[in-house]
Structures are given as structure tokens and as C-alpha cells.
Amino acid sequence: MPHIDYYLATISPNCYFAGTRPAEVAAKHGCTITYRPLDIMGLFARTGGTPPGQRHPSRQEYRLIEIERTAELLGVSVNAKPAFWPTNPAPSSYAVIAAQAAGGGDVGALVAGLTAACWRDEKNIAEDEVIKACLESAGFDPSLADSGLLSGAEAYEANLEDAVNAGVFGAPFFVTDDGARFWGQDRIDALDRHLAG
């Protein structure tokens, strides 16, 4: 059975724009998917990227234009400058890791819910109440937000190392079990075609 490693950042606007499409593509091809949240700022530091706030003003301005343009293209609402961004992505990432380990819910819906809470709903995804609401909405026990913190931290760190070793440098980033790599929410169609052969 084919497999996708989905490297993501819960504070990434492009992971918000990806929504549940990665899960839909995986299901279409009978493919398993592992959600691998990571520290995107740590990834930038390791792979030559520049955090948005440190980019040249022209790049910062164009980034906002592209966020608005992409939202319009996809027909979704977005706040290009969300009230709680950047925020600490670790708590929401640990929740994704714990939910995936526990099973019983929809991890794709959880990732979509967390990113939407940040980029659409003006909520702070570092806060327990927000994380618990997203867990519950995706069919998970909200108490998962209070458990597995050590194992979550270890997996979060391991995801960053694995990402660097796999040639990942941004999010969303998809790596298939045959080594194909796809960067960006606008490459999900290419991932789909690859899985179709």
C-alpha cells in the first residue's frame, strides 16, 4: 500500500489552504498518510529559509498578496494578518501527534481545524481550550491535549530531523514512499497524478 509522509506546520497559511485535500488524495488512491507536524522556523534555520518577519519588505508585502489571492482562488476566508500569529505551534503539534497515536478520529480534519482556527477564526492555537475544541470537532477525546507531552515533544523534534534528512524545506511538504517530493498546497494535484501513476 502506498504511503505519504505529510510534513506540516500548524501555523502555516499554506497548510490551512491545503485543508483536507491531502487526506482526500490519499483515500482516493488507497494510500496511508502520516501527519508529521514540525517546527517550521527550525526547518527554515536548518535549510536556508528566512522567517517571514525577517524577509525583505517587498517579499513580506507579496506574501500577503498571495495569501489573499490564494484564499479567493480556493473560495475560503482568511485573515492575512491573524491576531495570534505567530504563536507557539508546539501545543497544537503535540495534539496532532497524540491524536494520530490514539486513533478514533479524523487527523486530517484536526489539522484543517487547527490551521483554520488560526488563519480564519482569529483564535490562538497555543491555548488549551482552542486545541480541545479542535480535537473534539475532529472526533477525538479533548483530553488528549493534556497527555503525551513528552512523547509529543520527542516526535516533534524527530519530525524536524526526518524532514531535513528527506529534503524537506517548507510546509506543506509531501514525501511518498518511492521518494517523490511535493512542496506546497498548489502541488497536491501533482501528488494526485503521481499516485495515479
Rank of each mutant, 00 (worst) to 15 (best):
M1R: 15
P2D: 12
P2E: 09
H3T: 13
H3E: 15
I4G: 08
Y6W: 11
Y6M: 10
Y16K: 13
G19N: 10
A26C: 12
H29V: 07
C31I: 05
I33K: 08
I33G: 07
T34G: 03
P37I: 02
D39N: 04
I40R: 09
G42V: 08
L43I: 08
A45D: 14
G49R: 01
G53V: 09
Q54R: 10
H56Y: 13
H56A: 14
P57G: 01
P57R: 00
E61V: 12
Y62P: 08
Y62D: 06
R63E: 13
R63Q: 13
I65K: 14
E66G: 10
I67T: 12
L74H: 07
L74G: 06
V76N: 07
V76F: 04
S77V: 02
A80D: 12
A83S: 14
T87L: 12
P91G: 08
Y94F: 15
A98C: 13
G103C: 11
V107N: 07
V111C: 02
A112D: 01
A117F: 00
A117G: 07
R120I: 00
R120H: 15
N124H: 12
A126G: 01
V130L: 05
C134V: 03
E136F: 01
S137F: 00
A138R: 02
D141Y: 09
D141N: 11
L144C: 00
